[in-house]
Amino acid sequence: MTVSLSNPLVMMVAKRTALGFLLLIAISVVIFAGTEMLPGDVAQSILGQSATPEALANLRAEMGLNEPAHTRYFNWFGGMLQGDLGTSLSSGSDISEMIASRLSNTLFLAGWSALVAVPLAIFLGMIAVHYRDGFIDKFISMTTLAAISLPEFFIGYLLIMFFAVTWNLFPSTSIIYEGMPFLDQMTAIALPCATLTLVVLAHMMRMTRAAILNVMSSPYVETAELKGLSPFKIIFHHAFPNAISPIITVVVLNMAYLVVGVVVVEIIFVYPGMGQLLVDHVTKRDVPVVQAAGLIFAAIYIFLNMFADIMAIIANPRLRHPK
């Protein structure tokens, strides 16, 4: 396969990537507008209700709040692109520094959760297909239905109750620091990781099951059955590769959900990540930090969605091998 622009695959991937970046810019406008144009005065909220008009005017001038909105937007977004996220209103410290270590902590937690959840979901999905309509399938689908309905904090506190308090196996708060031995890190994130896995597992497993079942009625699966192949071999070698595109889509969508679910899980386990930073600063009404953290979350989410679409394009053999 030669890479050239005439190749429809390359064209489509390029288009999707461009669309992703366009979307990111549009989202930055929405986030900026959402915090700047809504009623509410940043200067007032910093100084409180008793502030004198002079003090308010001084602070507004100092923060550049008297500039027109679009000027402030370009300053803000331009800074973002260069890695300058501004300074926090509540602590006065540099936001980039505040975020750096927390972002890597969050990605560490989300990454390990994905590493556990994805293979498990696909494996359970295949098991459910193999025993379809039998007891195991019904059991898996009942428990996953329940898991979809459970709030993260119910699962989280239930796990803490049993694994941390009753049996004392894992810590109830996930303290993590730089230079911590790997095994200790794993122990620390075991419970939040399990919570996140349970949250995303159900949906991924159900969709994997549905996608494979969709393919199971195809003629080539019947041929494989008539050849006398073992049922698992049929599912793994014949049905699964042809169901890969919807499975990738749903896996990546759930990864995107994981990035959001991490916010609540971090609060439950007092994990020092982005989610806790975001919630803390929403409570403090520290708008610059909220904007920066919100944009980073949204960017990860958009990137994952873009990745899902591109993988689905690449997984399509007709686009990979054009006539």
């Binding site: 989202i27 986030i31 809504l38 609540v264 975001l278 929403v282 009404r285 919100g294 949204a298 989410y301």
Partner: peptide, 13 residues
């Protein structure tokens, strides 16, 4: 394209 919870948190700030 923006996760609902993140959007809500940004607006509620």
């Amino acid at each position: 394209a923006i996760p609902t919870l993140i959007f809500a948190l940004v607006v509620l700030s």
